[in-house]
């Protein structure tokens, strides 16, 4: 019985952890091309979720809402790149950290005023009946999370490996200057990565909303855990974020049951600080050689 409870908590937690992994993957996408990340990524998740909800409210069918939400997220990502990141990158400063935080703040405030401060339910076409696997209940929404996360990550990884543009992406990440010499515009590649990252954030929002409801603060706890996942796993490995995300999610489920729900954030944060102490570049990150 006890084992079943543990299993149940771990599995639900791990599936939730996939959402953290997806958001963290969004950090990796932009980090690869520009060594920068969007600190307002959580707001992108939230605003895109609200936008998708509005689409549904307007009568847009579910199947169209998803691409609509993704495109909206991608546009927001492009906006962040243009206003918050590009100038700082050109000047080789770290101003983008502050600027992306500021943009996040702006999106948050805008969402609060446009859609209100209350949490709203997000409809789903899936039935509420859970599926039983080895005695563990898994809701259909959780399954959709897993399917969505693996689908988009798989697609993007395929894009990176199989198309020339994707290879250009990796070339910029390996050596920006040399890539420019091949005729690859680094600026456009960075733009593309921010667009993709925004779409990924939007998908995270659409997938998680039926479970958590939609509200201005829906992403503030998630984003912290996504940060933890990104730092612990390192900013290079897509496989790493999935693994760490699931472990973190499972730990979190167990912690909130055994220690108290208020402590659910704690394992991720402790894991983060411990991981930093042991391996500053992340568990799956590449250790660089100091050069002079």
């Amino acid at each position: 019985m006890n084992a079943l409870i543990i299993g149940q908590l771990a599995v639900s937690g791990a599936l939730m952890g996939l959402v953290y992994a997806l958001i963290a993957y969004g950090f990796q996408l932009t980090y690869a091309t520009s060594k920068s990340i969007n600190f307002g990524q959580g707001e992108l998740v939230m605003v895109s979720a609200f936008f998708s909800l509005t689409l549904l409210d307007l009568g847009v069918p579910y199947a169209l809402m998803v691409p609509g939400g993704l495109i909206f997220g991608a546009l927001l990502g492009l906006l962040v790149e243009r206003t918050g990141v590009r100038l700082a990158l050109e000047e080789k400063s770290e101003g983008w950290v502050l600027l992306t935080i500021i943009l996040g703040l702006f999106f948050f405030s805008a969402a609060e005023n446009i859609w209100g401060r209350d949490d709203r339910p997000f409809p789903t076409p899936l039935s509420q009946n859970p599926v039983q696997v080895f005695g563990i209940d898994i809701t259909r929404m959780e399954i959709s999370v897993a399917v969505g996360v693996f689908a988009i990550m798989g697609l993007i990884e395929l894009f990176k490996r199989r198309t020339l543009l994707g290879k250009a992406f990796e070339a910029v990440s390996a050596d920006r200057d040399a890539a420019e010499l091949m005729g690859i515009s680094a600026t456009r590649t960075v733009m593309l990565s921010y667009g993709l990252s925004g779409a990924v954030a939007a998908l995270a929002g659409i997938l998680v909303s039926p479970i958590t409801t939609v509200g201005p603060t829906m992403a503030s706890a998630m984003i912290l855990k996504a940060f933890s996942v990104a730092v612990v796993a390192g900013l290079d490995s897509g496989f790493g974020v999935v693994l760490i995300g699931m472990i973190l999610g499972a730990l979190e489920g167990l912690a909130s049951f055994y220690i108290g729900s208020g402590w659910r954030e704690a394992p991720g944060l402790v894991l983060l600080i411990l991981a930093l102490a042991v391996r500053p570049t992340g568990v799956f990150g590449k250790a660089g050689i100091r050069k002079v």
């Binding site: 920068s36 770290e94 950290v97 933890s228 990104a230 730092v231 900013l235 983060l272």
Partner: peptide, 12 residues
């Protein structure tokens, strides 16, 4: 840590 990772750690 440097740069963004430091910011993330302090945020956590």
């Amino acid at each position: 840590l440097e740069g963004p990772q430091f910011a993330l750690a302090t945020l956590s």
